[in-house]
Structures are given as C-alpha cells and as structure tokens.
Design a protein around this nucleic acid. Sequence first.
DNA 1: CCCTCCATGGGTCGGAGGGACCAGATTCAA
DNA 2: TTGAATCTGGTCCCTCCGACCCATGGAGGG
Lengths: 203, 203
Amino acid sequence: MIRILIADDHDLLRDGLEQALGAVPDIQVLGTASSGSDLLERLAELSPDVIMVDVDMPGMSGLEALGSMRGGPPAIVVTMHESMKVRKQAIDSGAVGFLSKSTPLPRLAAAMRAAAAGESFIDGEYDLSPHMDAVLDPGAAALTARERELLSLLATGVSSTDELADKLFISQKTVKNHLASIYDKLAVSDRAQAAVEAIRLGL
Amino acid sequence: MIRILIADDHDLLRDGLEQALGAVPDIQVLGTASSGSDLLERLAELSPDVIMVDVDMPGMSGLEALGSMRGGPPAIVVTMHESMKVRKQAIDSGAVGFLSKSTPLPRLAAAMRAAAAGESFIDGEYDLSPHMDAVLDPGAAALTARERELLSLLATGVSSTDELADKLFISQKTVKNHLASIYDKLAVSDRAQAAVEAIRLGL
DNA sequence: CCCTCCATGGGTCGGAGGGACCAGATTCAA
DNA sequence: TTGAATCTGGTCCCTCCGACCCATGGAGGG
C-alpha cells in the first residue's frame, strides 16, 4: 500500500484525484493540501510514502515547498506547463518525477509506484511499464481464492454467517474460519469493516 | 439520474472527475472528450443531459465548440482562469454556468443538477444550495442528517458502537437507536449491509 | 396549542459474531 | 518425501449486536 499526499490548489482536480487514486488497490490517499505551506504542514502530520505536487499554487509554490523540505519523501511534480524550464526547476528542487496534467491516471499511479520503490524518472525518458500493473496491497494479495469469494459476497450485502455458508455450500464454522483469516489479512475486525475494504479493493 | 459528458484536455482531471462524479448517486458520466471537436462528436452519439466544458483545449477550444452547437444540452464552463473576460465569453457562447477549477466537487455536482433542471447560473451570483443535497433512493432520502453522519462513518470503516459513539459525541445507546432506524430505512439488518449500501449511495 | 418528528437517552434479552485453539484431507512445491 | 498452504470442520467462551420496550426535550407545521 502506497500512502500518498496530494498538493494542488484546484479543488476539482484534488477531489477527483483523491477519489480516483483511492480506488486504485495499492494506493491510499492520506490527505490533500491546497498550497505549498499547507503541504509542509500535512507532511509532518501524515508522513506519506510519496507526494504529488502541483507547480502552480497560491502563496508558496510547489517547487518552493519542495526546495525547503529536502530529505522528505519522494515527490512527483505535476504541472500544466510542458516547458523544459519548469521541468529542470522541478528536478533541481529535488523531485524524482515530472508529469504533465495530461497524463493518464494509470500512468500517474505507475509513477507513484516507481517513486515509492525509490526510482527516479522523468516522463518520456523512463519506462514505467514495470509499474503499470497494479500490485495489490500486501494484505489483499495474500487472500486465497475462497476468501475472495466470501469477500465478494460480503461486498454485495450478504452478511450473515448463515447466508454466507449457504451460498458457498460450506458449514457456518468454515465461514467463520475464513472470515477470521480475512480479518487478519486485511487488518480489520468485523464484517462491516471487511465489506468496506472489499469494496475499496474493487471486489 | 443526470447524464453528463466531460470535456477537458487534461487526462488527470478528466479521469479523476469521471471517477468522482460517477460515485455521486444521481450523476452518470456517459463519456469524456479531450478537445472541442471531440466534444462535438461525442455529443451526437451520447446526447447527455448536461455537458462540462473546459475553456482551454488544444485545437478547437471549449468556447468555440459551444458557439458552434447552439441548441444542445446546457453547458457548464470550467476554467482555471478567473477572469471576467473569459466568464463573459462563456456566457456569450451559450453556457448556462461558469465555475472555477478551484470549485469543490459537491458544488460542481450541484451546478450540474441546477443545469439539468433548466436553471441558469453564475458561480458567486447564484445560490446553489437547493441542489446541494443529493437526491437519493426512497429509503436513503428518508435518512436524517444525523443518520447520514453515522452512515458516512460506517462507510469509512468505523464499525464498532464504541467508536461511533465516540466520534459523534453521543452515548452508545443513541448510536444503536440511530442504527436501528437506518436499518429500517435502508431495508438492511446489520452494519455490514448498511456499510455496503452507504458506499453504493456515495456517502 | 397540539401533534409529529428528531435527537438524545435508558433497560432487557436472546442470539449472532469474533477470538483462541485444534485437526483431518488435499494439493503442490521444495 | 516432507512440509507448507488451503479448505474444510470442530469446541468453548464471552462480547457485542440487534429487537423491542420506553422516556424527555426541542423544533416545526397545522
């Protein structure tokens, strides 16, 4: 699970990205910031694995914020301007990646995986394909086939032990055993939380 | 259900908005376009109820596209530029609404409801509040404000009576009372099912 | 003014759910 | 062949949840 922080002053992009990235299985949006100074504050509170920073923000710009926080998590700079000048400034400010706002979402996700893995890259000069396939988060990846089946049912509203056992043609005891190991793997403690996780993971 | 078409050349914003707006219960994203001419094509195929158009797009701009399609569905113009000049141009081009990209997502959704209802408005000069509440299905529409609050928490994985009571600053008994009436209204029988419903409804 | 709805709270009680532990059968890779 | 993982099933225990009963104070509509 890659924990990210998004900094952009445009609410629509920010809210949209938060929602869209949150739906990516291995990415979790810890929080957002709407300015450079806001970013620095959130950074201290949340300690994300990767941050996404817009260049143009009111007050302290994204690049200024980056410059003043050397040593923080890897940062991916996103901008509308394709200019080489801004690109170079971003690298100089310590960004590990540089993307246009015209980048498709899966590519941004891949960039975040690359950044989280400690790789440095520049769009157009680096092959992101090794990261294009979503790697599920550790817990979800460990789920067995049967556990996924059970989770899918849970995500559709089948919640009672009785019904679950019925639909899976197994005893109620086995359902509870599967549930217990699901709780363990997803780090949750009841069906309601498991259902929320299941939906978030797209099951 | 309001069927919309999104036109913006920035993939990140487009993909993000598509995801985020799709999660709004009464809004359905029919498709997207990345340029003015692209928009005109999609418009004929999809016949949306409302279109969201970015001003700045390569090739034919959003305003040019609007100008050449008088008579189509109501259009909401979105832009990064707050200038009065662009705003006036948008109105002249036939837009029924004008919003900044710094608009919160719920406000954009409200604007779309207003546009779909045949109302004309300009951000900052028009009260969108009558449209701020999502029109939900019969059961969900009957939910009270407090019940929605509780459901939202449930949808984020806060499932125990104790935690819920804590976050809402009420007694555990009241939490259980609220839950009982939620179960009744949503026709479910436990927290897991309620959480699934809550997410489905976009809370 | 009265009546309804909402939010808050109380109590009881049976049963479902979750935790801890164990164990046989099967499959599959080391 | 041996061991690990998976699926299946079990027992015990105790907490928590959901159903049903109720009460009070405030807001809003007729």
